[in-house]
Amino acid sequence: MRPSVQEMIAQSKGKKSKKIIEKIIPILLFLIASVSVLTTIGIVLTLIVETFTFFSRVSFIDFIAGTTWLPFSNKEAQYGILPLIVGTLKITLIAVIVAVPIGIGAAIYLSEYASETVRRIVKPVLEILAGVPTIVYGFFALTFVTPVLQGLFPEIKIFNAISPGIVVGIMIIPMIASLSEDAMSSVPRQIRDGALAMGSTKFEVATKVILPAALSGIVASVVLAVSRAIGETMIVSLAAGSTPRFDGDFTGSIQTMTSYIVQVSKGDAGYGTTIYYSIYAVGFTLFIFTMLMNILATYVSKRFKEEY
């Protein structure tokens, strides 16, 4: 006769090690979880420290108010970031013009009109669009969209703001479409049924009932998409050129904050030069822009959350 299970349990070793494990594991996991916090701290500290060095050489006022960005000048380098910001805004503007109507239109179609079958096919396909690497989009902008645009409007140069702007727009469509569709689908069925039962057309339901109810989610999706457009790097590096300019021209070569960082990284600006530190100052500015957008998105979706 074997001993009872309880006796075997009582005899089994490892009780002490069990207790130690139970104590150590939570601490270990907490340390792992704090890596993400450390990453944020690392990013902020890196940017601040190196930017600080940059501002010991270049005046802060010249940086944020200057309208000339000429870091590679042999005579006197100038670091006025406004041209880079203008370049970023040009790309973002075109991207928004392309992506907002298409993204929200697709979201309304998928959430209010499309059959279950269509939705089940289209949504994953849009996800593929979201999964295409940005380098591929950049190649597409440079070798397809730009030549097509040049065919239509000969004044457009090989490097310009329009083509990468459009392609950044295409890149953020899935983001707007999918997040807006989520917001609209989460409006309860009864609200929709209530409006339809009174004789509203689907369009009236969509614009007068669903859109207002899902507005916070839709606005948040657009803000997040704008943040992505501001931070987008490869499309602009390949197709927008590298000419920082402070004007309203979209047809010629421009430079954005991100593509400047790439341009310097590619070249061999030596460690310790002012140019080297300038990429941190530009990166910091970029970081602030995207952070503000992300905070705004969180604020919008929390503050104006609909109660159903």
């Binding site: 074997r2 299970v5 075997m8 349990i9 089994s12 070793k13 490892g14």
Partner: peptide
């Protein structure tokens, strides 16, 4: 239950 409490013998 037996396993988490340390009983590993397959026969048992």
């Amino acid at each position: 239950g037996p396993r988490i409490h340390g009983i590993k013998n397959k026969k048992i």
